[in-house]
């Protein structure tokens, strides 16, 4: 366990459509925000290297790619998540109410080994809006009832609290990263790529 192989952390962002999931990601990674919707290639996942307590970890942040719109995220999306970010819009009570559903959906689909202590982080986005309808207190109360989940009020538009939120996300993802060494008696899983043709490391019989 001294040297951990996996420093790649998979983070998935859940929440109703148009609560600002993609914008938060885009603000955090690209430091950009746009109010204009442009029908372009959708968001996939973005990666960023961050320092967490003297360790460099790579955050891989997965967007829902719009498949959340009709509750059609497949189980593959949830596989191996190290942290789940639940986002709602502070001006949309409906999106806040949906948090329970998204949390349950995550726990069912990802079925983490320690569901009671899986790191969720809750973000109340669009905190810059004046017409907010979900109070800070109400959101904090909800997080308190779920084993005290970290809660941040963010604005992807004004870049408020976005970096702070993602640092917490990275730290909590890293802290729960315990499953990694469970299956170490089997050669590493393989990612396909054209250039680097990796071979199974533990194999005794090298091919010709």
């Amino acid at each position: 366990m001294a040297t951990r192989k996996k420093v790649l952390l998979k983070v998935i962002i859940l929440g109703d459509s148009s609560v600002g999931k993609t914008s938060l990601m885009n603000q955090y990674i690209n430091k950009k925000f746009t109010n204009q919707y442009k029908a372009t290639i959708g968001a996939d996942f973005l990666t960023k290297e961050v320092m967490v307590d003297d360790r460099i970890v790579t955050l891989q942040i997965w967007d829902t790619a719009g498949q959340e719109r009709f509750q059609s995220l497949g189980v593959a999306f949830y596989r191996g998540a190290d942290c789940c970010v639940l986002v709602f819009d502070v001006a949309s009570p409906g999106s806040f109410k949906s948090l329970d559903g998204w949390r349950d959906e995550f726990l069912i689909q990802a079925s983490p080994s320690n569901p009671d202590h899986f790191p969720f982080v809750v973000l109340g986005n669009k905190a810059d809006l004046e017409n907010r309808t979900v109070s800070t207190k109400r959101a904090q109360q909800w997080c308190q009832n779920k084993n005290g989940l970290p809660y941040f009020e963010t604005s992807a538009k004004e870049a408020t609290n976005v970096d702070q939120a993602f640092i917490t996300i990275a730290r909590n993802a890293l802290a729960q990263d315990t499953d990694v060494e469970l299956y170490n008696d089997f050669p590493e899983q393989i990612k396909l790529s054209g250039s680097t043709e990796n071979r199974s490391s533990g194999s005794d019989n090298c091919a010709c």
Binding site: S17, S18, V19, G20, K21, T22, S23, M25, N26, N30, K32, F33, T34, N35, Q36, Y37, K38, A39, T40, I41, G42, A43, D44, F45, L46, T47, G66, R69, K126, K157
Partner: peptide, 19 residues
């Protein structure tokens, strides 16, 4: 398909869902 890093994302969900 381009890698995510190769794209400059200009999607803003706040303006409404795609389509």
């Amino acid at each position: 398909a381009p890698d995510p890093e190769e794209l400059s994302l200009e999607v803003d969900e706040a303006a409404g869902p795609p389509f």
